[in-house]
Design a protein around this nucleic acid. Sequence first.
RNA 1: GGCGGCGUAGCCAAGUGGUAAGGCAGAGGUCUGCAAAACCUCGAUUCAGCGGUUCAAAUCCGCUCGCCGCCUCCA
Length: 499
Amino acid sequence: MSLKVYNTLARKKEEFIPREKERVSMYVCGPTVYNYIHIGNARCYVAFDVIYRYLQYRGYGVTYVRNLTDVDDKIINRAKEEGLDTKEVAEKYIKAFHEDMENLGNKPPQIEPRATEHIDEMLEVIKCLIEKGFAYEIDGDVFFEVQRFNGYGELSGRTLEKMRAGERVDVDKRKRHPMDFALWKSSKPGEPNWDGPWGKGRPGWHIECSAMSSKYLGMGFDIHGGGHDLIFPHHENEIAQAEACAGKAPFVRYWLHNGFVNIRDEKMAKSLGNVILVREILKKYGSNVLRMFFVSTHYRSPINYTEENLDSAAAALERIENAIQNIDYLLNKSEEIAGTAMSGIEGFEEMIKGVEEKFAQAMDDDFNTASALGAIFDFIKEINLFLEESQKNLSEKSRYLLKEARDKLIKLMGVLGIKLGRKEVAKKLPGELLDLAKSIVGQAFEKEGTALGALVDAREKARREKDWTKADLVRKELGKLGFILKDTPRGCQVIYEEK
RNA sequence: GGCGGCGUAGCCAAGUGGUAAGGCAGAGGUCUGCAAAACCUCGAUUCAGCGGUUCAAAUCCGCUCGCCGCCUCCA
């Protein structure tokens, strides 16, 4: 089985053959740290986190680099607004970014280079470009001359003639071609600046990714990722800079781009002012739900943000969580069930073996998470059917299989970055349990755990005596404290949702 | 004007030549004191529309309609 990825440069799916047999080099454009990130940004980082995880799952070692753009016009403007200096703004939002990444459940990249710490590397590239005749200097500004670079426009599939430079923004008249872009900008007083051969200034946006990706991954690395909107001009310019300076191609083997998050059928973007912040949405839904929402659609397709879609993702996730909980519950009770071998067990065993292959097949097809979820849900169905059988008849073998199924489910969902079956060993039970137990059971308890046990027992007793009022009272009061009680043929299953 | 994409059940969504996965919501049923979970049954003769190629098309080609993105910063 081979992995296929959609390469923007080729405009089709290609077999993925990394530069080195067992190691993948991957660079993803990180944030410009001038604001909190929104769901659109989050989708990109989650998409590439899933790709990162899947490559590792597939046995590759992955060198994952994601930069931080900490010098930029927007940061300068933001600093003025907030009355901070640019460094403080950058630090503030880098910290926030890291918090958001962690709360999203994203694994950190191995290397997270900052633009301001790589000025020398950028200056080297700029000097190289001037020497080779690909760039020119005017009044302390340095521009890349796009007409000198042959492949310009190849990634985005456009030609210089067809582009409408200046359509929406005035063109700097000093430039030799309207599409020429800045490599170095002379700085105004009060702006962050570094000494360069052309006077004090700061780097243009595109140069940092060329310089830093080459530094850490070398020319010709495997995957360069980012949002769809970065194809032009950002990634186009990166290619021009890197390949012009190196005098060889390719700069990158596979270009991967994720689709947008839309809201009310419009792109979610800071510039459109329709963003929903990651930290806001996570308060309401949590990372598992948000990730479920993302992976239910292929990463290259647009995805529409609506409350309804998030709720739907939450319900789907619950179906998976229920299966895990129900397995756990049954396994805990298993010693009470004498079992003999039952029919249909072989089918279930096959299913456990097969699900991983189906999952991988889907993921091998350009990381088709939506299709992979289909395999997961087929599996869930089988688990539920097997669980129902096992209520009456649980052999050693089926116990073992249920555990296998559970582990498999956790493993595969883990590849999507969705964490299941966490055992919160040290989870603190609410102290109100003591009071509740005292008033209902009529006895003082010292530990919350025993109080909870006594309450459940009291309810069981009430149910046996058909005292429904009391039984329902216990369930209702425990519900207020976050406990969910489910009566099963095998007793009362208690689920505690952490608030 | 150029380039790219999208349109599959009430909603979300996979499927890119072999006869429509899956999830959510909904209806009925089983189980059940109630609740929850789960299970069973029910939904597109059809994939925006119209033509064409083919033994065979949601999938390929052409046209039409509608929507979106990029060509400025943007994930």
